[in-house]
């Protein structure tokens, strides 16, 4: 495993921890999109089907279990926890996330490396992950005041995606036959979605101002 991949996994892990920290200690999910969290739970559930069939490493299995466990517990917190659910901004979080799922299913059925149930599900999870952040970004645009933890959560997610691209570039030059168009293109699309957010994040950081996105 190269340094970019490890750093990518760690920023991904930290992003989830920051979010859980916010929800668990402050008992608030203000500014967090339930739609995006539900999509992530679906992404992990469909991607990690191989957890029982293919053993890669202890690291791999542990991380998969952490991402599955954390994503479903975040959804549980926002939907069911009696204090946390009160802070959920239902009126603002209106993105029709179900409409993202069907195109991803169709695309996965049409464009995949192998037409098997596991492979199509895996490909579906890549396509869905690419667009899963959209409800969160839309909610962010509507929320006038973005708190620090929410800003850091999205920044860490974007950092994770960027580091994975560096990881692919590194692997392309160091490993033989390492060409994965589906992973790369969906990963690139996903990272580009963060470009706008990054711009305003660094801008507010540089000027030492509170993060605010233009309406």
């Amino acid at each position: 495993m190269n340094i970019f991949r490890l750093a990518g996994d760690m920023t991904h892990l930290f992003s989830v921890l920051v979010l859980l920290l916010k929800i668990h200690t402050i008992k608030s999910c203000a500014g967090i999109s339930l739609k995006t969290q539900e999509l992530y739970a679906l992404v992990f559930a469909t991607r990690y089907l191989d957890i029982f069939t293919d053993y890669i490493s202890l690291y791999n299995t542990c991380m998969k279990l952490i991402f599955l466990g954390s994503s479903f517990s975040i959804v549980w917190y926002i939907r069911r926890h009696k204090i946390v659910r009160r802070s959920y901004d239902k009126e603002q979080d209106t993105f029709r996330h179900h409409f993202l799922i069907l195109p991803c299913i169709i695309l996965a059925l049409l464009i995949n490396e192998k037409f098997t149930v596991k492979e199509v599900m895996w490909t579906f999870s890549l396509y869905l992950e690419a667009v899963a952040i959209l409800p969160q970004l839309v909610l962010l645009q509507r929320t006038r005041n973005i708190d620090n933890l929410t800003g850091q959560y999205i920044f860490l997610l974007g950092a994770y995606r960027s580091l994975y691209i560096l990881n692919w570039i590194y692997r392309y030059f160091t490993e033989q036959h390492y060409v994965h168009w589906i992973t790369w293109i969906s990963g690139l699309v996903q990272t580009l979605l963060y470009a706008d957010f990054f711009y305003y994040y660094f801008h507010s950081w540089k000027n030492n101002e509170k993060l605010q996105l233009p309406a």
Binding site: H12, I56, S57, M63, E175, H180, T183
Partner: peptide, 10 residues
């Protein structure tokens, strides 16, 4: 080879 390298990623 049915285990493509990308599958070792998360």
């Amino acid at each position: 080879d049915n285990q493509s390298p990308a599958k070792d990623e998360l």
